[in-house]
Simulated scan of single mutants.
Amino acid sequence: MAFPQSVRLVEVGARDGLQNEPEPVSTETKLELIDRLGAAGLRHIEAASFVSPKWVPQMADHREVITGLKRRDGVVYSALTPNLKGLEAALQCGVDEVAVFGAASESFSQKNINCSVSESLERFAPVLDRAKAANVRVRGYVSCVLGCPYEGEIAPAKVAEVAKALYEMGCYEVSLGDTIGTGTPLKAKRMLEAVARDIPMANLGAHFHDTYGQALANLYAVLEEGIAVIDSSVAGLGGCPYAKGASGNVASEDVIYLLNGLGIDSGIDLSDLAATGTWITQTIGRPNRSKVGVAIAAQ
């Protein structure tokens, strides 16, 4: 396979990146982060999560964030909506696109959303029907595609089964998540091979965490197979509350540096993005986990 000519980055820093911060991050800071990301050229920004504030207190201001956005032309602002209640609230706020999330692991599904994989898929059916009626696109996430904190190895066939169910249900794109970051390039290729038998490559994305330092190597491996959508988080913010020790998402700056080196277009200005990563980490008092961001800031 040849590399794609261009890649769309789905920036998850404002949602996945901030959701586990122990100290509240102000709505103003979140809005400024989203605005800076748009200014740097990002065209798909996951802005909020419409979940119960009881479970994710950091996302309690989801309405204020979505209604307070300074919208830029050509930028999709999406939100996570795990259930019908969340979807209705997101629709009231005028969200562009929503996302639902399942898992390829039974244990993870039970611990994360308190139901089996098949039950979680059943719950999504009315969400997808309602979103379709409202003319809002739905993206699907599959967690634990390259390993689970409770079950260890996950069979590629299981990942393919869950991804196919989401796609057939009406998700226009399915993002494959290495939630605990244990994947390696060959595993990533084999998993993708299994999933791509049922879903066109153009409808798949990669959401790889960098816990074991393998995210960029894994992304290179799936780019070779034709993946052209990558989820990443500015400054490498975030992790997974249900996956112990899972350091965050791959840093957007590091991904752009890799893409630039491969001659793959992303439409993103690396210096603007790096400046945004420096700003947000200083603002919330977190280390910058982007190697590229740190190197650029040191120049």
Rank of each mutant, 00 (worst) to 15 (best):
A14Q: 10
R289N: 14
P24E: 09
E106Q: 10
Q92D: 15
A298H: 06
L121A: 00
P22M: 12
L84Q: 11
T182D: 03
Y77A: 09
V7R: 02
P241K: 11
I66N: 06
Y220I: 03
A14T: 05
Y212L: 13
Q92P: 02
V12Y: 01
G248R: 06
K85A: 12
A134G: 06
D272A: 14
G86D: 05
A103W: 00
R123D: 00
I45C: 05
N135E: 15
N135W: 00
W55E: 07
D129Y: 01
A60F: 03
Q299D: 15
G147F: 04
K244Y: 13
E46S: 03
I296A: 14
G226I: 07
E193L: 09
G38D: 06
K30R: 14
I280V: 14
S266V: 02
E122C: 06
G285E: 13
N288Q: 12
H207F: 00
I268V: 15
V195M: 04
N112Q: 09
G38P: 02
Q110A: 08
S232K: 11
C93K: 04
P287T: 04
A134L: 07
K164C: 09
L33M: 12
T184H: 14
G147E: 09
K291I: 05
A131S: 14
A103F: 03
S78C: 11
G205Y: 00
I66D: 03
K111I: 05
E119Y: 10
N112K: 10
L128E: 03
P24T: 13
N135P: 05
Y257D: 07
E151F: 10
L270H: 08
A104W: 03
G181F: 01
S271H: 13
A39T: 15
N288T: 10
F101C: 02
E64P: 07
G177S: 14
P149C: 07
V76K: 12
V255W: 01
M169T: 09
P22Q: 15
R8S: 12
I34T: 05
C148H: 04
A39V: 15
G245M: 15
A202M: 08
S6V: 13
V138M: 05
V145Y: 00
V255I: 10
L121F: 02
R289A: 12
E88N: 07
G236R: 08
P4E: 11
T281V: 08
V294D: 12
E97G: 03
T278C: 13
L262S: 08
A215T: 01
V136A: 06
Q214C: 07
L42R: 07
S109K: 02
N20H: 08
A39F: 10
G183N: 01
M201K: 13
A133F: 01
K132W: 01
A298N: 13
M1R: 15
H207E: 01
T27K: 08
S107A: 14
A60Y: 04
L273M: 15
Q5W: 00
A14N: 08
R36H: 12
P22H: 04
N20C: 12
K187H: 08
L18Y: 04
E193G: 12
T283D: 06
